[in-house]
């Protein structure tokens, strides 16, 4: 298992459901818990993943997400069981939509 910590600049996101959870720690899947943080213009992410050595891939996926979605003011915790970048992006969008009260 590997633990990864990241911080990205991101536009503030409005919150409705805090905390929000989506996904399951199953094979090729992950769970994402979104909570409110103290920095309104930043998104902090902590990942625990079963797959070692993919830190740069995580950084790229999360950076792209934090740029394309307003995610500032959140702290995101992820438990991962080998999800692909596409699944990670989908779940992040799902979790953030739920955090804003919408769901997908």
């Amino acid at each position: 298992m590997e633990t990864l910590d990241f911080r990205f600049d991101s536009k503030p996101v409005p919150r409705a459901a805090d905390p929000a959870l989506c996904g399951v720690v199953g094979s090729g899947n992950l769970e994402i818990l979104v909570k409110s943080g103290i920095e309104p213009e930043a998104c902090r992410v902590r990942i625990k993943t079963s797959a070692r050595g993919f830190g740069e891939t995580w950084r790229a996926v999360l950076d792209s997400f934090a740029t394309s979605h307003p995610a500032g003011g959140t702290v995101i915790a992820i438990n991962d069981m080998g999800a692909t970048p596409a699944v990670v992006t989908l779940r992040l969008a799902q979790a953030l939509a739920e955090y804003q009260g919408g769901g997908l």
């Binding site: 298992m1 959870l21 720690v25 769970e31 438990n79």
Partner: peptide, 12 residues
């Protein structure tokens, strides 16, 4: 965690 496996927040 001791066995180096990711857990789930609600422990399933």
């Amino acid at each position: 965690a001791l066995l180096d496996l990711p857990g789930a927040f609600d422990d399933g």
